[in-house]
């Protein structure tokens, strides 16, 4: 196991613990949830093996589910966005392609690129999560409200964490 691998595993645990110990209780008005752990999935290196991505998504979703008592729910959403991530990244390839070892983040690609990259994946994740949890479209507008508020909240925290810990280099 090289240093990079150990670092990734440590980061995985940190994101998971912050999610289930702190952010699980930081819900605003019973509509805005912060799912910061998506940030870990989004910032894995660009060239990570596709099947490894899906596997990591499955593991992260499953562990979050254990703490949220919603077995399968987060797993479903995570596996879906991790499957779509490489296709979405290849559509967003900047001029000259990705550098080797590049990680999708504000430091390397800038805020605008990051928002274009993260927003659809986060919204898709939250839609799968909340509509499945609500058991369909019966509570449509409440659910849409939850998705919108949670997406704004999650993206805001994602950007803050990214800027704070990696520092904007551009």
């Amino acid at each position: 196991m090289n240093r990079f691998g150990v670092f990734q595993i440590a980061l995985f645990v940190v994101y998971l613990l912050v999610q289930v110990v702190v952010l699980k209780n930081a819900v605003f008005f019973h509509t805005a949830f912060c799912f910061l752990y998506i940030g870990y999935l989004l910032r894995l290196p660009v060239e990570t093996n596709h099947m490894a991505l899906i596997g990591v998504g499955f593991g992260m979703g499953l562990l979050v589910d254990v703490f949220y008592d919603s077995l399968g729910l987060h797993t479903m959403a995570c596996v879906l966005i991790m499957y779509l991530r490489p296709y979405w990244l290849s559509l967003l390839t900047p001029q000259g392609g990705y550098d080797s070892g590049a990680m999708p983040g504000i430091g390397q690609f800038g805020l605008q690129w990051y928002l274009v990259y993260a927003t659809p994946l986060v919204v898709l994740h939250l839609s799968v999560l909340f509509f499945t949890e609500a058991g369909g479209f019966e509570y449509f507008w409440i659910t849409v409200g939850k998705i919108g508020a949670s997406a704004l909240y999650t993206l805001l925290v994602l950007v803050m964490v990214d800027v704070f810990f990696t520092g904007s280099k551009r």
């Binding site: 099947m51 589910d65 399968g72 596996v79 499945t132």
Partner: peptide, 27 residues
């Protein structure tokens, strides 16, 4: 891989809700 893991997730979700199974994977 995606298909298999997604189906596992959906199965867990349905199983957990209908039959109160999956004794280990909850809080």
């Amino acid at each position: 891989t995606f298909l298999v893991l997604e189906l596992v997730a959906v199965w867990m979700f349905l199983e957990n809700n209908q039959f109160q199974g999956a004794r280990f994977f909850n809080s």
